[in-house]
Design a protein around this nucleic acid. Structure first.
Length: 682
RNA sequence: GGCGAGAUAGCUCAGGUGGUUAGAGCGCAGCAUUCAUAAUGCUGAGGUCGUGAGUUCGAGCCUCACUCUCGCUACCA
């Protein structure tokens, strides 16, 4: 959108059950902050919205595990994350939260509007219900044996042992995590958002219309989902923690967290507008507002397909102008992982490097994963600091200030006649400002940060080329002009680095003894008046020693090692069963006669087995680790009296027994020496 | 397997609508310089632009096939 009347900028709502790491920051928060700080310097009307996403099952589960209320959990992380943002200089206009009554009201109203317009589909279906606790069980609240790896503590949505995603009905011997009882299937009613209908009606066209102005990864991801055809998506679920469904007779139902979370942007805007005497509706409903969502790539489908569907179904809202989603940031060559404890946590960084916040901002911005996944390394952090911030920017500012102090007692000297070269430098400064505008407005922040640094490079070049120190004896007038120009460049610098390095910008303003200036002054010659007195020069940045970053890398590896050791445990034994139960299983020694991969699958192998009783076909998930030729003629153990099941259209009559270690490596259970086919294993 | 994104200098990455000698920063080599936290400036070496075909007068950019990496997705009795 060209020159909108106002901007509404959102950053993905962090989920309030854990702290933030640099991957989050690089993905959705720092880019947004840079963008917004720029807009503010241009005195644009902008609202920068964020807050905690505080509903959903993982929070309730965590609360239960820790024996506290969900509210206690979200209160804790809301404060931690709010502080983390503040410490990083990420200045939202409001950091709201979805457990706030205003949000409940807003989300509730939103649902009701769609409900009354008849946008939803109503469906009744069977779900597991815990009689004792009198409630339906969320996927996560159902525990059972994983049908894949037999892990006996698998959740209804996923097995943590083997990583397979599951649905509750697939679990063997499901048990309620609440009461420990066996849950019953019971009918329940839910509402669905007909995304398939929207896809046909307008959504796909809308996405297509953004083929050229949205980033390739964003557009591509959307198309990928659309190609697979969107399905109606449940808007409500049976759970206590969340926004209650505002319809009679729906006790125990809340809005699905994916539905209420993005509405959090709206309620946060309301809260902000209320507090500042603004009209929130202008920001959400006026066509002249540019709505921009900053997110990580994992959130693309929600912000580009689902949330717009909700807004459009409601009817009064504008849709997003752009969704500049970033890819993922890696750390020291490995992907960031909370569970493997491979991360740089914001709260820890802030504690250890309170004076290096801008160094982190700079390093992250220079490495934003804008087009593809990118790597953060501590070595790079050090290099960027020492070779760029210290050597180029800090050094230039220091040179200009020290020379001024030395020659003119800290007062801005007069600017007399400009040479062609001076003019050339100044026009290049003006160009830098324009290039910077272009980059930021097109969400190219890596490029922008580089251009900002060019201002300092320009200053260094100017000093090197004009050599005021060698002119001082013979042409003091010229020296005055040179330093005046140099100081104007430092003043420009203080403006243009503000979006990226806000703390440094402030320090620089203090050195120059000026207040915050409007963006348009950048590149101008008359920012500092003649005779204006600057403060005593001080270094903007300090060098970082090798051992400092080596220590950080060591700390990372140590944390990971610890975590790995914790995780290496052998699966605990299952409950005892009677001999009767055991003897129900019929396991035989069989021989693999034929083996071939099932086409169009990654893991499946079709095996012909001679069981001694008969020849039969078995499908097994072993194709990733074995070649068909290598296993022909092998004697294996096979469960022969399992109910046959069709897999990928092939009738599988039995199951090959495999030993699986903690890393998922498979080994056949074969007899120690060749034996009779059909021999009974017992 | 399907879909999407990526593969460009030693490293991290840029390369609107195809057009003459493919760019930046860092690293490396040489020169200059001393106001500055041995910081700065200039110059230079370094690339068969994943592989193989094709379209075109001309392709890093377009088409097809293939390889590798990452993500989503299906199968896992």
């Amino acid at each position: 959108m060209k020159d909108p009347k106002r901007y509404l900028v959102t950053s993905a709502l962090p989920y309030a059950n854990g702290p933030l790491h640099i991957g989050h920051i690089a993905g959705a928060y720092l880019p947004a902050d840079i963008y917004v700080r720029y807009l503010r310097l241009k005195e644009k009307d902008v609202a920068f919205i964020c807050g905690s996403d505080e509903h959903g099952v993982p929070i309730t589960l965590r609360a239960r595990n820790e024996g506290v209320s969900p509210q206690k959990i979200v209160d804790k992380y809301h404060e931690i994350n709010k502080k983390a943002f503040k410490d990083l200089g990420i200045e939202f206009d409001i950091y709201h939260r979805t457990s706030d009554p205003l949000h409940h009201q807003t989300a509730s109203d939103f649902f009701l509007t769609l409900y009354e317009k008849g946008e939803f589909i109503e469906k009744e279906e069977e779900q597991y219900y815990d009689e004792k606790e009198q409630q339906f069980l969320a996927d996560r609240y159902i525990v059972g044996i994983c049908p894949k790896c037999n892990y006996d503590n698998a959740y209804g949505d996923q097995c943590e042992q083997c990583g397979t995603s599951l649905s509750p009905k697939e679990l063997i011997d499901p048990v309620s995590a609440l009461s420990g009882n066996k849950p019953q299937l019971k009918k329940t009613r839910h509402w669905y958002l007909p995304l398939d209908k929207y896809q046909e009606q307008w959504l796909e066209d809308w996405i297509d219309s953004h083929r050229d102005d949205w980033k390739a990864n964003v557009y591509g991801q959307c198309k990928s989902w659309l190609n697979q055809k969107l399905q109606p998506r449940a808007v409500t679920r049976d759970l206590e923690w969340g926004v209650p469904v505002p319809v009679k007779g729906t006790e125990g139902k809340v809005l699905y967290v994916w539905f209420d979370a993005p509405i959090g942007y709206i309620s946060a805007t309301k809260a902000w507008a209320d507090a500042h005497g603004k009209d929130w509706e202008k920001y959400w409903k006026d066509k002249d507002t540019s709505l921009v969502h900053f997110i990580g790539k994992d959130n693309i489908v929600f912000h580009c397909l689902i949330f717009p569907s909700m807004l459009n179904a409601h009817g009064e809202y504008i849709l997003s102008d752009n969704v500049p989603a970033n890819e993922f940031l890696n750390l020291e060559g490995d992907k960031l992982s909370t569970s493997r404890n491979w991360a740089v946590w914001v709260n820890e960084f802030v504690k250890e490097f309170p004076d290096k916040i801008d160094v982190l901002r700079y390093t992250l911005a220079a490495n934003f994963p804008e087009q593809k996944d990118n790597d953060f390394t501590w070595k790079d952090f050090q290099t960027r600091n020492n070779n760029e911030l210290v050597a180029v920017m800090g050094n230039f500012v220091n040179r200009a200030l020290v020379l001024t102090k030395k020659y003119f007692d800290g007062k801005v000297p007069e600017c007399s006649e400009l040479t062609d070269y001076d003019r050339d430098i100044l026009s290049r400064a003006a160009t830098i400002k324009e290039d910077l505008e272009n980059s930021i407005e097109n969400f190219k922040f890596r490029e922008a940060v580089k251009i900002a640094m060019d201002m300092a490079r320009l200053g260094n070049k100017y000093l090197a080329d004009t050599e005021p120190w060698s002119l001082y004896e013979r042409d003091i007038g010229r020296v005055q002009t040179i330093l005046n120009v140099s100081l104007q460049i430092t003043a420009s610098l203080s403006i243009i680095i503000e979006p990226f390095l806000p703390f440094t910008a402030e320090r620089l303003r203090n050195l120059l003894n000026i207040s915050k200036l409007n963006w348009e002054l950048a590149g101008k010659l008359d920012i500092l008046g003649v005779g204006h007195e600057i403060n005593k020069p001080k270094h903007l940045f300090q060098k970082i020693e090798d051992e400092t970053v080596e220590k950080q890398v060591e700390k990372l590896k140590e944390a990971r090692r610890k975590k790995e050791q914790e995780a290496q445990g052998i699966q605990p034994a299952k409950e005892n069963v009677g001999f009767e139960d055991f003897s129900k299983l019929d396991i035989r020694v069989g021989e693999i006669l034929e083996a071939e991969r099932v086409p169009k699958t990654k893991k499946l192998m079709k095996l012909a087995i001679d069981t001694g009783l008969d020849q039969r076909t078995v499908v097994a998930g072993i194709a990733e680790q074995f070649n068909p030729e290598d296993i022909k003629g092998k004697q294996v153990s096979i469960a022969v009296n399992l109910e046959p099941k069709k897999i990928k259209g092939i009738q599988s009559q039995g199951m090959i027994l495999m030993a699986e270690d903690s890393e998922g490596n498979l080994t056949f259970l074969s007899p120690g020496n060749e034996t009779q086919k059909g021999a009974v294993v017992k």
